[in-house]
């Protein structure tokens, strides 16, 4: 069900209901069309800002990797004869162990599945499939987000280096922290989506509000995949 201006009684610019008393009940005294228009633009702008943050993360990775200051990008130039030093002044005599890519891949898969289930929730709401269908898909999406967060925290525990072990280790952990922060934010939104869907808040008339969340969920999945791929491929 598409939202059209005519359907919601709007003027040429989509500004305000032209028909007296056409407002929604409750606290929302503006039309669905207007809300959707505003929230979509808000989300795209926020995603564009976040995308630039991601670009700067990647810039940091490739810049420090190319510069390889003191041979301490990943310690490849460090040896017993030519030791480097970590952040506490301890000698580093061998290359930093590479992070296991499996954790990143699992996190990426969870983020993709979470986005997919949120997309399914949107589809279910759009075709008026009922409260259970929407809440079920949203709940699964939320669960996969929790799983991704769990694996990300686990990776922090088992990663074979710490933040003080040079630029590769620092940037890799920064990527992990950034991913974790995004997943937590998405989980907050995902929990809200699930709880609200359980109360039957999303149907054929309000499906577009799930779409806004789906945009963000897809973005989270895409940015997670990019960070994981760079971390795994460019040691």
């Amino acid at each position: 069900m598409a939202i059209t201006e005519a359907e919601h009684g709007h003027d040429d610019h989509g500004h305000g209901p032209a028909v007296e008393g056409a407002e929604n009940p409750g606290g929302e005294h503006e039309s669905a069309f207007r809300r959707d228009q505003k929230e979509r633009l808000l989300m795209w702008l926020l995603i564009s800002g976040d995308a630039f943050f991601l670009v700067l993360e990647l810039f940091t990775w490739f810049y420090l990797r190319a510069l390889n200051t003191s041979g301490l990008w990943n310690g490849a130039a460090c040896s017993k004869a030519n030791p480097c030093t970590d952040g506490l002044g301890n000698p580093i005599t061998s290359p930093i162990t590479r992070a296991n890519p499996v954790h990143g891949i699992i996190i990426s898969v969870c983020a993709i599945l979470a986005a997919a289930f949120i997309w399914m929730a949107e589809s279910a709401a759009k075709r008026d499939a009922g409260r259970r269908a929407v809440a079920g898909a949203a709940g699964l999406g939320f669960l996969f987000l929790l799983a991704a967060i769990g694996v990300q925290i686990y990776q922090f525990q088992v990663i074979p280096f710490t933040t003080i072990d040079g630029a590769y280790a620092s940037t890799y952990e920064f990527f992990m922290g950034s991913t974790l922060a995004h997943l937590i934010l998405m989980a907050f939104i995902g929990l809200g989506l699930w709880l609200r869907a359980s109360k039957g808040r999303y149907d054929g008339g309000t499906w577009y509000r799930v779409r806004i969340i789906r945009f963000f969920a897809v973005w989270i999945a895409v940015s997670t995949v990019i960070l994981v791929a760079v971390g795994a491929l460019f040691y």
Binding site: Y63, L72, C84, G87, G166, A167, T171, F174
Partner: peptide, 27 residues
């Protein structure tokens, strides 16, 4: 980004901006 990296350099010992441990002030 720059302030987050700065605070992680100070609080967790990362080395984004410290050349002695692989960072770069130019970054």
């Amino acid at each position: 980004a720059v302030m987050t990296m700065m605070i992680t350099d100070r609080v967790t010992g990362t080395s984004f901006f410290v050349p002695q441990v692989g960072g770069a002030a130019w970054l």
